[in-house]
Computed example of a mutant assay.
Amino acid sequence: MSEPIHRFSGARRRVLALAASLGLVCGTLALPAHAEGRIRIAEQFGVVYLLLNVAQDQKLIEKHGKQKGVDIQVEWTKLSGGASTNDALLSGSIDIAGAGVGPLLTLWDRTHGKQNVKGVASLGNFPYYLVSTNPKVKTIADFTDKDRIALPAVTVSVQARILQMAAAKQWGDKEFARLDKLTQALPHPDAAAALIAGKTEINAHFGNPPFQDQELAQNPNAHVVLNSYDVLGGPGSATVLYATEKFRSENPKTYGAFIAALTEAAQFITSNPDAAVDAYLRVNKTNTDRKLLLGIITNPQVQFKIAPQNTFAFAQFLHRIGAIKNQPKSWRDYFFDDPATAQGS
């Protein structure tokens, strides 16, 4: 009895092996290991996200996806602050994160050798203003314990980090966190509303356009205490996009379509500022003054390009104060290598 069973078992094993191999082939054909065609993007508040607004309004990602033979489903999410954006990326809730270069470097450092989060592209160069309504505050040295500075995320946001850079320049690296105790996390729209109304403890806001411009236009006591360009030593890419290595490697066509869409959006804004303003108003469903928006977009200090600029000094500062453990040798360490961003810094 044992011999026939033995022969049957051998035959059965061969049949099962054949079936498994066929099933594997069929499965490979039916279910690609890395299915493309979906991208989930998180943005925040302000004109600094105009590249994404134009891409959404003009459906540029879908357009370039079709050119690459992929029907891309784009999902848009709006968050506030680098901390929540980083949490969303690490949890797998989003594929592309939009936040300051500070949150990018924080996550690059934390995921180094693991998820390997890196920068995808810049969203352009914008001066960020630290605005105060306290007439006694002319420089950051004039802030006292009675002042409260609103920014999108305490410590980790790009505004928080630039404030630390300014403090380090004023009082030395050991005092980089000197003003942190005065900061308070608040979404830009809420911070701007508080500063304009002047009825809360918030009397300063390190924001971005258009909120900083609204504050200066609508509150006669509002004035600029600090310009991010002065701290960084010139125009810099304060807000960027980043993703995990896994998403980039498993979705090359979708990722490529996204980069192509950003490139086209930058060209569109530069050539058609009026149309870009219309796109911003449509996507954000806002009644922000059109003339104010156009003034921001056409400001000579504002540059729409996706190659990051002047980020390395920022990265060096974060490593110097111990905010990141891994020391980047150049900006290329924390940005993916792509032809579209090859002229970065």
Score class of each variant (00 low, 15 high):
residue 220 P to R: 11
residue 276 A to Q: 06
residue 217 A to H: 00
residue 198 G to Q: 11
residue 160 A to W: 01
residue 241 L to K: 00
residue 183 T to Q: 09
residue 185 A to V: 06
residue 236 G to V: 09
residue 242 Y to M: 09
residue 186 L to H: 03
residue 270 T to F: 15
residue 149 I to M: 11
residue 265 A to Y: 01
residue 211 F to N: 00
residue 251 N to L: 12
residue 150 A to W: 14
residue 207 G to Y: 13
residue 192 A to F: 02
residue 179 L to E: 12
residue 260 A to E: 05
residue 236 G to I: 12
residue 269 I to F: 14
residue 211 F to R: 04
residue 144 T to K: 12
residue 253 K to L: 11
residue 177 A to Y: 04
residue 144 T to C: 11
residue 161 R to D: 09
residue 248 R to N: 02
residue 224 V to L: 13
residue 169 K to E: 01
residue 170 Q to M: 13
residue 225 V to N: 04
residue 147 D to E: 15
residue 233 G to L: 15
residue 194 A to L: 09
residue 262 L to Y: 01
residue 183 T to E: 07
residue 205 H to S: 07
residue 175 E to Q: 11
residue 207 G to R: 09
residue 232 L to D: 05
residue 211 F to I: 02
residue 197 A to Q: 07
residue 168 A to K: 04
residue 218 Q to D: 10
residue 249 S to Y: 08
residue 264 E to G: 03
residue 183 T to I: 14
residue 199 K to W: 08
residue 184 Q to R: 12
residue 211 F to T: 00
residue 169 K to G: 02
residue 249 S to G: 03
residue 216 L to T: 01
residue 216 L to Q: 02
residue 278 D to Q: 11
residue 153 A to Q: 08
residue 232 L to Q: 07
residue 158 V to M: 12
residue 184 Q to C: 07
residue 259 I to M: 13
residue 257 A to V: 07
residue 187 P to H: 15
residue 239 T to E: 14
residue 198 G to I: 15
residue 214 Q to C: 05
residue 159 Q to L: 12
residue 170 Q to L: 15
residue 237 S to Q: 06
residue 197 A to E: 14
residue 160 A to M: 07
residue 236 G to F: 08
residue 229 Y to Q: 08
residue 231 V to T: 07
residue 164 Q to H: 02
residue 262 L to K: 09
residue 269 I to R: 09
residue 216 L to F: 04
residue 276 A to S: 10
residue 252 P to S: 14
residue 272 N to L: 13
residue 239 T to W: 01
residue 201 E to I: 05
residue 188 H to F: 15
residue 277 V to M: 10
residue 143 F to Y: 12
residue 216 L to N: 00
residue 192 A to K: 04
residue 194 A to R: 02
residue 274 D to R: 11
residue 257 A to T: 01
residue 180 D to R: 12
residue 207 G to D: 12
residue 238 A to P: 00
residue 267 Q to K: 10
residue 171 W to Q: 08
residue 213 D to E: 15
residue 196 I to S: 07
residue 267 Q to R: 08
residue 151 L to V: 05
residue 193 A to N: 05
residue 222 A to S: 04
residue 144 T to Y: 14
residue 196 I to C: 07
residue 202 I to M: 13
residue 215 E to H: 00
residue 200 T to P: 00
residue 183 T to M: 14
residue 213 D to C: 02
residue 196 I to A: 11
residue 152 P to W: 15
residue 266 A to G: 03
residue 179 L to V: 07
residue 225 V to D: 00
residue 199 K to E: 06
residue 171 W to S: 09
residue 259 I to P: 00
residue 261 A to D: 00
residue 194 A to S: 10
residue 146 K to R: 12
residue 263 T to H: 08
residue 206 F to E: 02
residue 278 D to L: 13
residue 258 F to E: 01
residue 247 F to I: 12
residue 190 D to R: 09
residue 219 N to H: 10
residue 231 V to G: 05
residue 160 A to Y: 00
residue 278 D to R: 07
residue 265 A to W: 04
residue 282 R to A: 14
residue 228 S to P: 00
residue 231 V to R: 14
